[in-house]
């Protein structure tokens, strides 16, 4: 939990590479959400990563 500052053009998460483990709320600025075919913009008050599937931690005893 914490605040993260991003510069213009900085990638917060990259499709196919980063693992989903956090949910973000935009408190300042705008973020472009895109894949190969479509894109949209999100502003202040938007959740980042709602459409993603989070990873789960599981403890196994062997």
């Amino acid at each position: 939990m914490g605040l993260l500052k991003l510069e213009k053009g900085q990638i917060l998460h990259k499709a196919g590479e980063d693992e989903v483990s956090s949910l973000e709320v935009i408190v300042k600025g705008r973020i472009k959400i895109y894949d190969a075919t479509s894109s949209m913009e999100a502003g202040v008050g938007n959740f980042i990563g709602l459409a993603e599937n989070p990873g789960k931690k599981l403890y196994l005893f062997l």
Binding site: L6, K8, H13
Partner: peptide, 9 residues
């Protein structure tokens, strides 16, 4: 899972 979309400021 990995991210389906990319997120860029």
């Amino acid at each position: 899972k990995n991210y389906i979309y990319s997120y860029e400021a």
